[in-house]
């Protein structure tokens, strides 16, 4: 119930932010489309802890800055490798352990890996992620499980 309510509030806020017109006609149209979308997503049964992870809001705000710093570092590294005349790359492919139990946690971890330039998640199994990496140092860093622990902490399973 709380998820449905928060999806509704979220959709209304989205409409108001995107339109920013407060005439009765546009507000009415916004209400109608919000209710329609809410009805459709309830019928599709996509509103639950996974489809609308309300409980992650605060921990996401803690996780994002760390991820952004990581992304900037990895970007500078990959940029250096692209512009270097000899392209010092040694592509590696390896399985990396992931300790998240829920699908949502795994998706967040895999997406974080892919979002960081230099590493790319290729397939996800029960407790491993197949990672293709531009350099062996990048995968060395992943194997220290810092990101894995951060994501697990964020999703709230230890």
């Amino acid at each position: 119930m709380i998820h449905k309510l928060s999806v509704g509030i979220f959709l209304i806020c989205l409409w108001l932010l995107l339109s920013w017109h407060f005439t009765p006609l546009l507000l009415g149209l916004g209400l109608v489309s919000t209710l329609l979308v809410l009805y459709l997503s309830i019928r599709m049964e996509i509103i639950d802890r996974e489809g609308h992870p309300l409980h992650l809001t605060l921990s996401t705000l803690r996780y994002l800055p760390w991820l952004i710093v990581k992304i900037v570092q990895a970007n500078l590294d990959v940029t250096w490798r692209i512009l270097h005349p000899r392209m010092p790359i040694d592509p590696t492919q390896e399985k990396v352990k992931c300790s998240q139990k829920s699908d949502l946690g795994k998706v967040i971890y895999a997406n974080s890996i892919t979002l960081t330039p230099g590493t790319l998640s290729m397939s996800i199994d029960a407790d491993t992620i197949e990672v293709h990496s531009l350099t062996s140092t990048a995968i060395e860093e992943l194997r220290q499980n810092t990101m894995d622990r951060k994501v697990t902490q964020m999703v709230g399973e230890d």
Partner: peptide, 10 residues
């Protein structure tokens, strides 16, 4: 893929 990821993120 890694090259596109540079231009897509940063």
């Amino acid at each position: 893929f890694h090259a596109t990821s540079v231009s897509d993120t940063m």
